[in-house]
């Protein structure tokens, strides 16, 4: 957020979930060919309340309750966007992507390319990621790399109410398929959100904390853990810069590399399983473009290589947190 924007939003605080609603509402007001379709998005207002009030305001023609048929729902998004609509498709949990992955992998992501640019698919898909609520292995995953691996789709992961609203608006205005992966643990998070429309440019990271001696690159909710870790580390004399990647695909290499060139140390943190996670890609880009600036290997933190456990005690160890980040930074710097 720029300083000008900050002034503009002074005092207007919304929760993450309300910011989602507002973002979707702005899109519906702006684009008469847009609609929302998904399971229980209408009458029920969304299983997380993220569409509450929209059914009353826009009616059943534009807020469409679907059967439990994810392949059909995403197909609705692909086909209708090919035929002149700008749909907002809700796939309740990112875990359910398995149900509709072919529609995404082999149709949505490739149609434009396969057709030689002959089709445009301005479809936006919203879905929830994240562990920490005792929802077990099929309702807690972070599967963003499944999507980021696909040329032809964009993937953003807003961590704040401001970014949630702005990303949804930006995604819906984009003429490409865009996945806005939201974090269910953050639904109650409060933050400043301006009225009206504004954009959060897809493919741009944000430096959310300035620092000089260590760069932490964080994804989605891990941004907040990283900020907490930065506070703890500052007491130890480590001046941490925190970058919220915001966009996984495309990825803003420049912001990350510029920070590393300044701090000479880096750590990437995400909630997804570490093996094959986006962290590996980010570390590779850093060592490609800033190897000579590094004073230590760039670290990675992700979830251990297991499904998300149900038991709260195991889930607590499973999900990376500020303490783990602090420990890793100290290890990298050789602090005890």
């Amino acid at each position: 957020m720029s300083e000008a924007q900050k002034e503009n939003v002074e005092g207007r605080v919304l929760t993450y979930v309300d910011a989602i609603t507002e973002g979707v509402r702005e899109v519906l007001l702006e684009q008469s060919n847009s609609f929302v379709a998904g399971e229980d998005v209408g009458l029920a207002g969304g299983p997380f309340g993220q569409y509450s009030g929209l059914f009353a305001e826009f009616g059943e023609d534009r807020i469409i309750d679907t059967p439990i048929s994810e392949k059909g729902i995403v197909g609705l998004g692909v086909g209708s966007s090919a035929a002149g609509c700008r749909p907002i498709i809700d796939v309740m949990f990112v875990d359910f992507m398995g149900e509709c992955m072919d529609e995404i992998v082999n149709q949505m992501a490739k149609m434009r390319y396969m057709f030689g640019g002959g089709v445009t698919l301005p479809v936006t898909v919203l879905s929830m990621t994240g562990a920490g609520m005792s929802m077990a292995a099929q309702h807690s995953q972070s599967l963003e790399v499944w999507l980021a691996h696909l040329p032809g789709v964009k993937v953003v992961m807003p961590s704040t109410p401001y970014d949630a609203k702005g990303s949804i608006i930006t995604a819906a205005r984009d003429d490409n398929p865009v996945f806005v992966l939201l974090n269910k643990v953050s639904l109650g998070l409060k933050g400043e959100v301006p009225e009206g429309t504004y954009e959060v440019e897809i493919g741009t990271a944000e430096v959310v904390r300035q620092g000089t001696s260590f760069t932490i690159v964080a994804v989605s909710r891990m941004v907040h853990e990283a900020l907490q870790a930065a506070e703890i580390l500052s007491e130890l004399g480590v001046d941490v810069e925190v970058i919220d990647v915001r966009s996984i695909q495309p990825f803003d290499t420049d912001t990350v590399v510029n920070s590393i060139k300044k701090t000479h140390h880096g750590l990437v943190v995400h909630e997804a399983v570490e093996f094959g996670g986006i962290g590996g890609e980010i570390v590779a880009q850093i060592q490609d473009q800033a190897f000579d600036y590094l004073d230590a290997p760039v670290g990675r933190i992700g979830a251990p290589f297991s499904p998300v456990p149900f038991s709260p005690v195991l889930e607590k160890i499973y999900v990376p947190d500020a303490d783990l980040i602090v420990a890793k930074v100290k290890e990298t710097l050789g602090l005890s």
């Binding site: 077990a136 292995a137 099929q138 149900f310």
Partner: peptide, 10 residues
Amino acid sequence: YCRGKGGSMH
């Protein structure tokens, strides 16, 4: 039954 790994849904 699932050693606490699954919970109600599994």
